[in-house]
Amino acid sequence: MMYLYLFLSFFKIGLFGFGGGYAILSLIQYETERYGWLTQQEFADMVAISQTTPGPIGINAATYVGYNVTGTVLGSALTTFALILPSLILMFALCNLYFKIKDNVYMVGVMQGLRYIVVGLIAAAALLLMTPENFIDIFSYALFFLVFIGTLFFKINPILLIISSGAVGYVMYYICQ
């Protein structure tokens, strides 16, 4: 049954996952919380791992959740397959008429509407992660602030920021304690 739920969840995520990696993460966040597959803390860890390893974030996240929930390679393969299946069906159907799609007024309207909404989806993902488990003390807020500034204004590589935050965490919460 677990496998069936995983398949259906990730199929749904693949079917509605418009707007790139982070937008897909927000769908994964909702589904994994609903079924109790990941806590917000585990979700944050999963995002960090998906970001620092190569490949598309959606595939990384699906593989991770599949393994985390079932503990098997089969579970990982199932979630990854379920995630890409809807887009493959749609790509297959649209590939032959792709010249018409681009300038279709309905398509353009829908894509524009989704571009507004995706910003909200990603904002919600960030808000949901602001839990006391993820922000344990004043240093957490300081790290949040520094990484925010570093990304937005100095365009520092996100992987570098994750690794440095990990190093700071190691010093602050292990060596100093």
């Binding site: 982070y22 993460l25 803390q41 944050a44 860890d45 995002v47 960090a48 970001q51 524009q112 571009r115 507004y116 995706v118 910003v119 990603i122 904002a123 993902a125 960030a126 992660l129 602001m130 993820n134 922000f135 344990i136 957490s140 807020y141 790290l143 949040f144 602030f145 520094l146 990484v147 925010f148 990304t151 937005l152 996100p158 920021l161 994750i162 935050s165 990990g166 190093a167 700071v168 965490g169 190691y170 602050m172 919460y173 292990y174 304690q177």
Partner: peptide, 27 residues
């Protein structure tokens, strides 16, 4: 300990591009 440092950073990484995304979408 490492992940205690990483978690708030992840939230910042998700939140930081929002401003530019909103502008890119025409807002």
């Amino acid at each position: 300990a490492i992940f205690k440092g990483i978690r708030p950073a992840v939230v910042a990484l998700i939140a930081a591009p929002l401003w530019n995304m909103a502008r890119a979408a025409g807002m």
